[in-house]
């Protein structure tokens, strides 16, 4: 088995993950792309473990660890996404731009200027507002027993 095959495959997979992270709007799709990148790393770990015949099986053990960490990361990440969704009624990453320069007449950057929200998520106030905590969060907190 030539090591170059899994290595090249891992490189391609990683690049695809990069593209997904950079190009996708939906936060969950971005998380999927992150998983792709993690799997690319896993493939490399396994391939080099096999090639080097590591007596401690460091590569494969580390792969297992990475899988576990990826699962934990995904859990926390999804929790964050859900929290964002509760507050903002959206998970589209290019509309979460509170860090932007405020009150700029031409302030919409190139990334967001040409991508206006075509259909705002159902129910809920306009998510374009600044950090104003939407009404949805507070009653939900109060109402939850």
């Amino acid at each position: 088995m030539h090591v170059v095959y899994p290595a090249v495959l891992a490189a391609l997979l990683f690049s695809i993950g990069v593209y997904g992270v950079l190009a996708r709007r939906n936060t969950i799709l971005v998380l999927m792309s992150v998983e792709l990148m993690l799997n690319a790393v896993n493939l490399n770990l396994v391939a080099f473990d096999v090639w080097l015949r590591d007596r401690l099986h460091g590569g494969q053990v580390l792969t297992l660890f990475v899988i576990v960490i990826a699962a934990a990361e995904l859990g926390v990440g999804l929790a964050i996404v859900l929290a964002v969704f509760r507050n903002r009624q959206t998970v589209e990453i290019d509309r979460l731009h509170d860090l932007a320069e405020p009150d700029d007449p031409g302030g919409e950057g190139p990334a967001t200027g040409d991508a206006p929200p075509s259909d705002p998520p159902a129910g809920g106030p306009s998510p374009d507002g600044p950090m104003a905590r939407p009404q949805g969060a507070v009653p939900a907190r109060d109402g939850a027993p």
């Binding site: 990069v18 992270v21 950079l22 190009a23 990453i93 290019d94 979460l96 731009h97 509170d98 860090l99 932007a100 320069e101 700029d104 031409g106 302030g107 919409e108 950057g109 190139p110 990334a111 967001t112």
Partner: peptide
Amino acid sequence: LRRLQTGNAQLYLTGVL
């Protein structure tokens, strides 16, 4: 330069990569 400060994390990440 402030035009780059769009608040879009993807744009920042693109720059970093």
